[in-house]
Design a protein around this nucleic acid. Structure first.
Lengths: 199, 199
DNA sequence: ACCCTATGTGAATATCTATTCACATTTTGC
DNA sequence: GCAAAATGTGAATAGATATTCACATAGGGT
């Protein structure tokens, strides 16, 4: 018996937060409606009052993570016009986010969320390429402003910038948080920024 | 009814190859004993004559992938003493492997295989860090031979080298093979090698 | 206060999956 | 050739999971 009845807005939030929390602890694969309900303090069937299906819950969790990612991007671009500064800030923001919102890496890398359904996969691809386009935009601006080398392909650079994250994320997870993501990110950034800085 | 009875060695091979094939097509999560059996041309219960459990089949598949990865590493180190040459060869080898053995990226990134079981996760970590150590070793040799800058941390470089792969892999998968992994890998390598080459 | 809607419950259901088990058949070794 | 072992089958089982459904209750609006 739930302690009280709550409106659907509040419950939906609780459910999504519970999902993120459980995903962080156990991964997407082991996320069950039963565990979710327990976490929120309801019975499993109650969740269907607020979401049509388990997949809808997952979708909502993905969107939340995505929104936070985009927020980071916006804040970073608003804080400085310098391309390299932006990129560094963004990198550090994302690293921070990985540490705090631990479900994020699991969601991003999980095939349970997107990769086994054509439409969702396409959507995820659109989101990812959108992110890469934004990075690419920063690179181009940097090139126009004389901050970034112009003899390098901005798109390639965007992908490489992104490439600083997965190894860090994976090692962090596999080592149960023992791997020093911040240091690795900083060092990677140093080398990368030195390599792409205009001369 | 199977066309013929085959010894366990042959069947085991067939089953593991079937696993890799299905994982490539559908991912680890959707790999079922029933689909595996169908693929091999047996009934599901027959698989238990050759493997104790589904997890054992998965473990065997992981080991196969791993072995091929190590083979690549050995061959590369045997083919040239030059560190940067080795690394480039290795990168291209892995890219080739990704294209041919499509199950590999799915296995590597899947939490269905390792991340939700402490012992397996640790094992995967040991394997991964072993791979990174080998790369690190190549970097150090390169530094000793005057091929690679000595002012950079070999460990960091190893992780960054590895970082060239995941974005490529992910984009390749999400775009259903449309993303040009080879070109991205080559460009990444050019920038990376230029950045770390001794001056 | 009353009625309707929103929310929660508990039981049932359907589906899927991995695995066991008893029987059948083929293969191997003596 | 015979017996034992290896391999394959089909039915059954157990477990887990997502979801539906009918009933109950709380909350909000009139």
């Amino acid at each position: 018996m739930a302690l009280e009845k709550l409106g659907t807005e509040i419950r939906r939030e609780q459910i999504v937060e519970a999902a993120l929390s459980l995903i962080a602890a156990q991964g997407v694969r082991r996320l069950s409606v039963a565990a979710l309900a327990r976490r929120v303090g309801l019975v499993p069937s109650a969740l269907y009052r607020h979401f049509k299906s388990k997949q809808e819950i997952l979708d909502a969790a993905v969107q939340l993570v995505q929104r936070r990612g985009l927020d980071n991007l916006k804040e970073v671009c608003a804080s400085t016009p310098n391309a390299l500064e932006r990129l560094k800030l963004l990198l550090m923001r994302v690293i921070k986010m990985i540490r705090e919102l631990q479900a994020m890496p699991r969601i991003v890398f999980s095939e349970g969320v997107s990769a086994d359904h054509p439409e969702r996969k396409r959507q995820a691809y659109v989101i990812l390429t959108g992110f890469l386009s934004a990075i690419e935009g920063i690179m181009r601006e940097g090139q126009e402003r004389g901050e970034v080398r112009t003899d390098l392909d901005a798109k390639t650079l965007a992908v490489m910038f992104w490439g600083m994250l997965p190894p860090v994320v994976i090692l962090w997870h596999m080592s149960d948080g023992a791997f020093d993501v911040t240091r690795q990110a900083e060092r990677s950034w140093e080398l990368f920024s030195e390599a792409i800085r205009a001369r």
